[in-house]
Simulated assay, not measured.
Amino acid sequence: MFAYVVAAVFLGLFGAGVLRDRRRFSNAVYLGLAVTFLGLGLLAGLEDAPPGVAVTVMVLVLLVLSLGPVALAGLLCANGVKMVRKEGRRPANLLSLLAGLGILGVMGLMAAAVLTHSTTLGIVVGTLLMVLGYVSFLFLSFIGYAFLYGRMRIRRDADYVVVLGSGLVGGRRVPPLLASRLDRGRQVFETLAERREVDRTPVLITSGGQGPDEEVPESHAMADYLVERGFPADRIVREDRSRTTEENMLFSHALMEAERPGAECVIVTNNFHAFRAALMARKAGVNGQVVGSPTAAYFWPSATIREFVAVFLQFKAVNLGICSGLVLVGAMALAFVR
Rank of each mutant, 00 (worst) to 15 (best):
T206Y: 09
I143E: 00
A303F: 04
N270Y: 07
V290P: 14
R151P: 15
A193H: 01
V318M: 13
I267G: 08
F14Y: 15
F10Q: 13
A274L: 03
I267S: 09
I305R: 06
G230Y: 01
G17A: 05
A278L: 07
M332R: 04
G105W: 15
A317Q: 11
P51M: 13
R184V: 07
Y225T: 03
L121Y: 03
L192M: 08
M222D: 02
A54F: 02
L121W: 09
M58P: 11
A333C: 15
N270R: 01
F37Y: 00
G292H: 06
G52W: 08
F251Y: 15
G170K: 08
G144R: 01
Q289T: 01
L95D: 10
G88P: 15
S207C: 04
V161T: 06
L60Y: 00
F275I: 07
R186E: 15
G45L: 14
V286K: 11
A263D: 12
R20W: 15
Q210P: 14
V131Y: 04
M107R: 04
F14I: 07
P294Q: 04
P212F: 01
M58N: 13
P261H: 00
D157R: 01
V124Y: 11
G88M: 12
V9R: 05
F147V: 02
T295H: 07
V163N: 09
V268F: 05
I267E: 09
A28Q: 06
P69V: 11
F137I: 06
P261N: 05
T191R: 12
R195V: 14
A71N: 14
L148P: 13
V70P: 14
G80R: 12
M280P: 05
F10Y: 14
